[in-house]
Design a protein around this nucleic acid. Structure first.
Lengths: 391, 391
DNA sequence: GCTAATTGTTGTTTACGCCACCAAAAGATA
DNA sequence: TATCTTTTGGTGGCGTAAACAACAATTAGC
């Protein structure tokens, strides 16, 4: 049973969180813009921002002289004094990054592997990378928590990795293990779901409250769903796992009918190339495989559209390449299999965020917790005076 | 741009609404239960309940002597002094009902037609039925608003009926028209979506935050989606319109492959029978059509499960009959086409709510508005003293 | 009939956002 | 250049909603 009543503390929390949310999403806003957006009183905003500054979450900067009448309003921006550590374990590497409010990656370390790491090794390596990263950050930077994006089916409530086929993990209590070695709060979720959130907040899905995100990677197709402006997980965190959706009557999963390997084999058999190179080759020497893939993909998209009625579909990874190479064919195929009313509303676009996508996404749940209760971060000691407004 | 800041008024609104929500869902709670559920102070609950009483939304009754130690706590129940008028226009009839908080239908009038009414006629008839119904209610009963469930694609924001194939309506501003003739606020939505909400709150979907509702009627199959405890509409209100989903490779819509008419023709060709009779006949003289239908339905359900990962699927109307007649076959078919992880979590059950389903559902959005701001209802005049606690 | 437990009732306290007022800072105007 | 207008920051007091504490009421159990 959750606490559902509201009291004065809740008001404060909510308003602090609202401001933090706005700063997170917009990057920078003037104090007067905050009063407009929230409808709160000027004096209230001043007090709230002051508290967020004292908690090291935002900084106030010199007003942008925008050539507008009236007294200039200080600009409120995310502070770099507080970061979220984002971890992304993959088959061949682990990446750890420091992400600020506003979704900016300010530092990053990576360590590669020959083979997929065991859970234990992944935890140990992650901890080492975290230490290394913290060493690179100024000593007074505070860590709000750790967010992890795993290519796995995850029970987000307690960070249990239930099944990670590519990594070979089963029922690994990843959040608990990482929390034990780092002493920090850890939130774990599926990588594609987190990617969807990143594109929703900062990428090709900005402001689109009903969207499907699909990402094509070397090890398969993952996806995430945002409906009504909220990430949708489904009962077991499986919603949006479109890669496993059956692509055709017979019933092979989409991610086995449409693969990156097939594209690579078509233009550079056996080569180890990245997405940019793959796209360059496919554009330079067109190959019928893009059309085949576009047809299968378009049909699957049509089926999804009929069920969830998104206003946009964001394609990342090699799916973005397919969409870029065969836009008309893909659209035609979608139009054929989607119903008219939802189909014509669904716009298909390519993902915008690049390599940092999963790191930014991994930080999101931690930032959500921060937004839910900014009081979580302690006020800075009185010794370290809040930075004066300088010019 | 919405007001997003919170202040003292918002706290009061939220808490009043929270209590109203609990009373609406539970039907009756003691004041002490309210303190437990909300986490608010006893004295606060007392004040809030008093305000809701003065606004005619709830009543306090004599404590149930439950054989528990301590001073008995008064029971808070929905008041019958405030109702929502629910309207359900169909092809062959219009029904209007008075629904109280708690989803109880206390009065109902219905008028049949030979042919589907035009928009204008539906509005006129509805207004007449509303007048008739109001005449049957005590004169001091207050109307919170009108909720309408239409078998149509609806833009809920402004109550525009965009397309009602069966009724032959296109772009009819139904909410506006009804508001004009009745002088009451009107909220319109798709009937199946509202049915889903009714089953979620009061029927087979109680407490299930991720569910698919599918209803089979004479004119087709409609559906609604609840994900993360929220009704999902999609970008254009088309989410959950599973009837139009393609059922097989070739691509005829589910609602044309699985029809009530086919079932009726199998056991009583050309007869005009209701669902109860249809079920009785199908059980008395089994017919292979139930198996065929169960197979097609099961496969479609499998596809839906893979995408939204519900923990329950609620089947109403003749789909409930199919589920009841062929439970093993349906389950087997679902298991075959759904992926294992989401498939084994999805329980298939039959709808519980009967004839009042759509009326209860139609009232929901109006009640939501009430919950969002109970201050909407004015306090009763000082002349009519709030009812004393009687025993 | 007494005690323990629970809850209603009442008056006081606390904290948050609002408001009114004044000062500051910029563009607009003369 | 000086002044006016507009917009915003800063400050102290105010209203209000929930929390709190103390007391009264009511029941079960012994």
């Amino acid at each position: 049973m959750k606490p559902t009543g509201s009291n004065l503390d809740a008001v404060r929390r909510h308003n602090l969180g609202r401001i933090l949310d706005l700063v997170h999403r917009e990057g920078s806003l003037s104090r007067s813009a905050l009063t407009r957006e929230t409808g709160l009183n000027r004096s209230t905003i001043a007090a709230l921002v002051a508290e967020l500054v004292s908690r090291g979450l935002v900084v106030e900067g010199v007003p942008a002289t925008e050539g507008v009448v009236g007294r200039p309003s200080p600009v409120v921006s995310p502070s770099e004094g507080t970061v979220v550590l984002a971890i992304n374990p993959e088959y061949d590497a682990i990446t750890v990054a420091a992400v600020t409010l506003g979704g900016r990656v300010i530092e990053r370390v990576r360590r590669g592997f020959r083979t997929g790491p065991s859970v234990q090794r992944a935890v140990t390596e992650s901890a080492a990378l975290v230490s290394e990263l913290r060493g690179r950050l100024p000593s007074d930077v505070r860590i709000a928590g750790i967010g992890v994006a795993v290519p796995a089916l995850v029970r987000a409530e307690d960070g249990m990795v239930r099944l990670a086929p590519r990594l070979g993990w089963v029922d690994a209590p990843l959040a608990e293990l990482l929390a034990d070695v780092t002493g920090l709060p850890v939130l774990v979720d599926n990588d594609a779901s987190l990617g969807a959130r990143a594109e929703y907040h900062f990428g090709a899905g900005r402001g689109i409250d009903d969207l499907i995100y699909l990402n094509g990677g070397a090890s398969g197709i993952g996806g995430g769903l945002i409906l009504g402006g909220r990430p949708i997980r489904g009962a077991g965190g499986y919603a949006g796992e479109f890669g496993h959706t059956f692509s055709t009557e017979g019933g092979i999963p989409l991610e086995r009918a449409v693969t990156r390997d097939a594209l690579v084999d078509a233009v550079a058999p056996g080569a180890d190339i990245d997405d940019a190179e793959l796209e360059r080759l496919l554009r330079a020497t067109p190959h019928p495989i893009t059309a085949t893939h576009a047809e299968i993909l378009g049909r699957s998209l049509g089926g999804m559209i009929n069920i969830v009625n998104p206003s946009r579909i964001v394609l990342g990874g090699f799916l973005g390449i397919i969409a870029a190479c065969e836009p008309e064919l893909l659209a035609a195929r979608v139009a054929r299999y989607a119903l008219v009313p939802p189909g014509e509303e669904a716009e298909i676009v390519r993902a915008e965020l690049g390599a940092d996508l999963l790191l930014i996404g991994a930080a999101e749940p931690v930032i959500d917790r921060l937004i839910a209760d900014p009081g979580r971060m302690p006020v800075r000691l009185p010794g370290a005076r809040p930075a004066e407004l300088q010019r």
